[in-house]
Design a protein around this nucleic acid. Sequence first.
DNA 1: TAGTGGTCTAGACCACGTA
DNA 2: ACGTGGTCTAGACCACTAA
Lengths: 242, 242
Amino acid sequence: MLNKSALVYDDLKQKIDQEVYKLGTYLPSENQLCALYGISRETGRKALAGLADNGYIQKIRGKGSLVIEHRQYAFPVSGIVSYKELAHKLNVTTTNIVYEFEPQASLPYGSFASLGGEQTTVPVTAIKRVRVLNGEPDIIDKDYILKSVVPNLPRRAAEDSLYAYFEQELGLAISYATKEITMEPATAEDRERLHVDDSMWIAVVRSVTSLEDARAFQYTESRHRADKFRFRDFARRQPQPF
Amino acid sequence: MLNKSALVYDDLKQKIDQEVYKLGTYLPSENQLCALYGISRETGRKALAGLADNGYIQKIRGKGSLVIEHRQYAFPVSGIVSYKELAHKLNVTTTNIVYEFEPQASLPYGSFASLGGEQTTVPVTAIKRVRVLNGEPDIIDKDYILKSVVPNLPRRAAEDSLYAYFEQELGLAISYATKEITMEPATAEDRERLHVDDSMWIAVVRSVTSLEDARAFQYTESRHRADKFRFRDFARRQPQPF
DNA sequence: TAGTGGTCTAGACCACGTA
DNA sequence: ACGTGGTCTAGACCACTAA
């Protein structure tokens, strides 16, 4: 059972996607939403704030909540979404080849927290996978999962979906991630696994994912063929303090 | 004069940056914030929600608001921030060379709205600039600004800061943008202006920026040397509906 | 003038964590 | 048992847009 505001959010989002509320038109006013859903105004406003955050609407004072063009799901880096979830949304055939699985690896602690120059390492499960989209190997994913959080990660979780395993089987609450995108020349491993030559560049997405209690538990390096890489973003301007 | 919640947000953010509230410690509780600032709880909660959105804190039920590592300002694509603002934050010497300025250009309407196959064009001011960071030309910016919103854009605005001109001199309220990042091989123009050879790839950021009343008014194509490109992001996981 | 969103309040009840 | 955050409410006042 979700919140009232989340239910209203989902309902409005769905109606926007299905063009019950069309692009360029206004949603019902806040007072009308109160009556429609039997909620208080602040509750409806929370739902609307979520839609505005995610680029579905623009609120205009004195007028209403205008439905605007919103970002579609771009392939692989917007938000924290697993491949299985994305493939489902995009109707793409994905295959997932685990070519390395090391339950007893270790990783420098600095990968998880850029605190001091800690030289210690932490025990992790290391996984390397190739994502095959529509028959072409496009992405290498290297995942390192802390054994202190997930002691025994079954290989089948890597072959299916790590997120589904973490959330549905272990009950972990994944909360946020920091990501960094850079561009790098292809390595030998990239050339071999992605079938590209050394003139190809690679878009590298490094991320650290944390749980609701703020424990970082997963470090991921995702390596995309440059010519297949695409990232979409929606951003609101913050008042600049000068 | 800002909101109460914005004032509290700014004050807390500043205290986190200055390590009055240190990484790994908890902010005062919501009830304490009410007393400290003389506000109601929902007002304080709005400030905290903003800090959580921007990756400053993680709220943990039953415990409090934990200060976490937050994204620094990465160079050029996080949020909607102008170069002048970024250069100020990062203490980098930037120069800005306007090498093309065309007050009577036109652009296909489709660049602004991916509606139908509209074949009309719209009048724009076209600007091409090279950004020189620490003595190296790293970025080409191509801006197209709708003449219906900004009829007479002075060249000096392009030489200084477009955003400062829009916001401070024209009083335009810049609200949101959609961006797309892709990678492309260097063109002849890239090679000439950025002093790279044809083995270099280019990170291309295309964006459409809109005002508070949801009018799209600026289309930008920002072309970065791949080896200098870096983008940092903070994302929270949304509940997935299946 | 009437309707819209923007902000703030004081209070209530719940769920979770700690002791 | 107590303090924490999570949610919701009913009402108030303000600023902006439109007719």
